[in-house]
């Protein structure tokens, strides 16, 4: 069963994240948390998504016909954990930290993996383009907010994160647009 392998993979990612040195290293910088820990938690959840029993997936699919419910759930939960306030709280309050470690895989990564394929290609396109523009906006925010938004991190880290996000947006944009140009097999060669 390959499903199990995915589950192990997800668990492996999470296990690495909780290793004290890794944890300390990631949480010592804002970039580590925002662009390291959070994405990896989401990826772990994505992998868990493949390991769910088929029956359960089928049942979920009745509720998630076009993938939009899953997508919306993932977006709102992710947004919540990206709020500077939640970032602070998850570092300082053990209960919220636990909530974050449960919610990001189970309510962001997993719904995404269950919904992504079901989404209409246009919906996926919107997610792509929106991710790019929102990364730019967030990067700009971290660069231009005159005060520290996270009490746990220095202003310089916040600015570094902002620059990193904009760089990431550019890379993603380049990557996605390249993909549009790389040929898949057309229905028929360009004779039409």
């Amino acid at each position: 069963m390959s499903g199990k392998r995915y589950a192990v993979g997800g668990a492996f990612f999470m296990a690495i994240l909780v290793l004290p040195p890794v944890l300390r290293w990631m949480e010592s910088s804002m970039i580590g948390v925002m662009l390291g820990q959070i994405p990896v938690l989401v990826v772990a959840g994505w992998l868990f998504g493949f390991a769910l029993p088929r029956r359960f997936i089928e049942w979920l699919n009745c509720w998630n016909e076009n993938g939009l419910p899953g997508l919306l759930l993932a977006i709102s939960v992710l947004t919540f954990w990206l709020l500077p306030r939640s970032v602070d709280a998850s570092l300082n309050e053990p209960l919220l930290r636990l909530a974050k470690w449960m919610m990001l895989p189970l309510l962001v990564g997993m719904p995404l993996s269950l919904s992504w394929k079901r989404l209409h290609p246009i919906a996926r396109g919107i997610v792509h383009t929106n991710a790019i523009s929102m990364l730019v906006v967030m990067g700009w925010l971290y660069l231009s907010v005159p005060v520290r938004v996270c009490n746990s991190y220095l202003l310089s880290q916040q600015n570094a994160l902002g620059r990193m996000m904009i760089a990431l947006a550019i890379v993603l944009a380049a990557f996605w647009s390249l993909r549009l140009f790389v040929a898949t097999t057309p229905n028929e060669p360009t004779t039409r």
């Binding site: 759930l73 947004t79 919540f80 709020l83």
Partner: peptide, 26 residues
């Protein structure tokens, strides 16, 4: 399901920001 997730998401963010007033812990 869409309606429910929207309600949930809105509620979560509403709660998480004290009614869209507080985005940072400060």
């Amino acid at each position: 399901a869409i309606v429910l997730t929207l309600v949930f998401g809105f509620g979560l963010l509403w709660h998480g920001t004290d009614g869209f007033r507080a985005f940072t812990s400060e």
